[in-house]
Amino acid sequence: MGPTDTVRLKFYLTSIKKVFSFFFFLGKRARKTKAFYLLSFLPVLISFVIKFALIFSEHRDIQGIYIFTNIIMAFYLQFLILVLALFFGTSVCSEELEGKNLTYLVTRPIPKISIILGKYAAYTLLTIFMTVVGVVISFVILNLSDLLNFSLYKILLKDIAVLSLGLMCYMAFFTFFGTFLKKSIMFGLIFSFGWENIIQYFPGSTQKFAIAHYLKSLLPAPATGRFAFLIFRLEPTSPAMSVFMLFLITGVFLALACLLFSYKEYILED
């Protein structure tokens, strides 16, 4: 890498950082973010209700970590991170188009790819933050009597890492579709609650075409019980391979999004 390349790389990274700062700041104030914060606190409410119900039920011996793992599997992995990634990922490009603010961004001296990467990074961090807050509070509520058991924190950290990886990957996927399609939300809904929810239960290598497969391969399988169906026919990929695949998918879709955004002509409708 020559000195010119180093300067150029530095310029690109600085541009990404500038865009990131702007959209992270903006994202925190957005009405959409506030609405999704409420949604991400739904498992906290569920955890609270369950904990309260357990106090008065005969199943007092059920461990908090067991319920927590099931909430991660059933609510976060199958629903929340998909919804967050769908709405924030597609909006990386589409909200600029619909709001016609794209005109301000593309007439600044920054490379177009920095707009995509900076905004993607800002929204990914924002959604990770939204998710983590809910996860941690749910964890505390469900494991109130067991908070000194430090082995549980290992599970918590692993869950947070997997959910973050999931958000990173889904966000990249939906960012690409947001730059590509006009009706990206519709497509995203079909993908999230159609493809992802069906393909992952197919036997053999077909299930490897779902992002959820790699995420589930990284999580500890819940013991038999009400939510065991969520790992029905899961033929897990090794953790290292799963992480590699998630990074690969992220990289590929982000590269495609950047390429498309740089060369596609976006016509802002009157």
């Binding site: 600085t14 865009v19 700062s21 702007f22 903006l26 301000y104 001296p109 920054i110």
Partner: peptide, 22 residues
């Protein structure tokens, strides 16, 4: 177009745009 990032203040908008000039 009469469009802005409406959640921002005038100051935040102008400084935000200026930051993109490095």
């Amino acid at each position: 177009y009469d469009v802005f990032y409406d959640e921002l203040t005038g100051w935040q908008f102008i400084t935000g745009m200026l930051k993109l000039y490095h």
